[in-house]
Design a protein around this nucleic acid. Sequence first.
DNA 1: GCGCATCAGTAATACGCATTAACGATTTCT
DNA 2: AGAAATCGTTAATGCGTATTACTGATGCGC
Lengths: 365, 365
Amino acid sequence: MDEPRKRSRPGRAPAPAGRTARPRQSEVARLAGVSQATVSLVLAGKKQGATISEETRRKVLDAARSLGYVPDPAARRLAAARNDLLGVFSFTATFPTDVQHSYYPFLVGIEQEAAARGYDLVLFTGSSTGGAGAAGPDALSRVRLADGCLFLGRHAPAGELRRLVADGFPVVHIGRRDELEGLAWVGADYVSASREVVARLAALGHRRIVLIREDDDAPASTDREHGFLKGLEAAGLPGGPAAVFRSAAPERELTAERLRGWMDDGVTAFVAEETDTGGAWRALRTAVRDAGADCPREVSLALLGSPPPDLADGPRVTGFDIPRTRLGAAAVRLLAALVAGEEATEPLVSCVFRSGATAGPPPAS
Amino acid sequence: MDEPRKRSRPGRAPAPAGRTARPRQSEVARLAGVSQATVSLVLAGKKQGATISEETRRKVLDAARSLGYVPDPAARRLAAARNDLLGVFSFTATFPTDVQHSYYPFLVGIEQEAAARGYDLVLFTGSSTGGAGAAGPDALSRVRLADGCLFLGRHAPAGELRRLVADGFPVVHIGRRDELEGLAWVGADYVSASREVVARLAALGHRRIVLIREDDDAPASTDREHGFLKGLEAAGLPGGPAAVFRSAAPERELTAERLRGWMDDGVTAFVAEETDTGGAWRALRTAVRDAGADCPREVSLALLGSPPPDLADGPRVTGFDIPRTRLGAAAVRLLAALVAGEEATEPLVSCVFRSGATAGPPPAS
DNA sequence: GCGCATCAGTAATACGCATTAACGATTTCT
DNA sequence: AGAAATCGTTAATGCGTATTACTGATGCGC
């Protein structure tokens, strides 16, 4: 019989002054002469479950309207056991001052898709670790406040990421990330895009094409080379190691002489991979200029990606665009699926070929 | 004695399969061998009230870290505490496809300042009303999940905003917003900036200057005119109605003839206000070109703001830059103060003069 | 008339956390 | 020594809403 003794109401401190009597469901209920549960049922508007008479429904709705009732999102989310929050984490500031290098295009897609699915976004950055300011090893822990989290950029520490994944926290990485077992990611289809670029060059009449790439084993690089070679093969053009120039320092090793050598050998088109620095592309342009070659007429150039922002002006570069916005949206879709407990995958997002002024038919030999 | 009968646990439905239970305080407590209340006390980190032994504190912190515990923001809010979340709400997409119209520069400042103060940002997307797409009267209600909220753009419905303010919910509007009583806002000091532009022109030797403005009564417009006139006055130059050309359709009414007329009258410099469309500035440029006037040499031009993005290339325009980043930061400061219950105000943020190539000394008469 | 299904609505929880009265164990005071 | 103060921790409670299980009141069929 140990009936709990009446306490002198512990718990809540007196409401702070600011709290105007924002109406609660219970007040709506009192005004309508029904129970709080009924109010909840009516306002939820679900067709299922308990049935409510039309009269009661109207009474409740009238009462709610007259009181100006708005549901408390905190309570709603607490009861629903889901916050409808998706995290967006970028190791560098999400909004770097340099707009060009920003994740902006991704965010466009992320926001759209998240909004369409009724999620709000929580923005995290590597620098903001919740007040402490010191990006400790548990910096990524904060993202757990969301239902799941998107990661932008390849700087997210693998260890922490692994930890999140291992704990079953829904995580999606934007950009291919194979090396991390179990990490979900979305990426662009560099293979197909690179192949298409080659196909276009071949269609223009080019018979010998050389790829300029840096000395890097990132998936983004190997995928491009792979697609490049597949493109050659599909067009029945000579592939093999001779078709690829790989250099750790293309800006020095890709000389005008070497370029001239290729051209004398019958090479009429060059393709460069895109990298953060744009090194391969820069080197290629420089070599062409130094060699005094007329770009669209004597030699065709294409870029497997977009030119670096500082080279953005000038003639449009033949190549392909990475669909960053669509990647962002795809990432949200995948993440939403994971949050819902589904075992989903998103296909690679295809890139869009960009025809430009740097490629044309080969010179009549 | 009516002891409540044991129910077969109503309430929560079983958690969806995918959800690996995010750790709760109770689990941290179990692992640390203490009660949930103790965990809460330790994590709250308050110096006041109950005291906790150093040993217990460490046990709890270790347990929390090893589980990757992060408090649930909704529960925190509901328990009448704070969740260290600041909302950012924009009725239109925060990241529109058109980069130029975005709130991006504001976000840079918002993020920096929020991070520095230990807040995380929640992006409430206006268009997303829970997937339904229909923006109900409580579209803004979601922001109550955060401790306070920033509003971007003047599309936020006044009614809902007023409601939030009335309920004592901390709200800060970015951009002047006087008409809404009690709404806190931060804005740029157009008056001083405009005055400075005039001062600079006067310093170059201009003695007659005319302002081209549209027919608008927005604060942003009247402030600029006000500053312009103050600048004239300070320089001892002729002001009055003759110095201001106000037109609802400047692109048609600001003809080359009219411009020539002013120039023949001794006007050597023109100033245009910045608007969304950039109408005044466009009209001015067109008129100058049509009149065949040589811009820096025969006539000086200045813009009270930044040129519209599609006119961004070409020579640098003399005028001033709106410090969007600093505005964002100021907004966060103000909001943080409001959240803390202080009665704060932020001063107007001053704009930065931008010297350009469109203004120079007047022609030797 | 007596079960049985249907309908309308309510009571009782639970969600996760913060808060505070109360409590056991010491230590200190008178 | 007994009372009182101190310390460290816990039990109990509330925040506002969503979700059942359950209760009365009808209506139905035989």
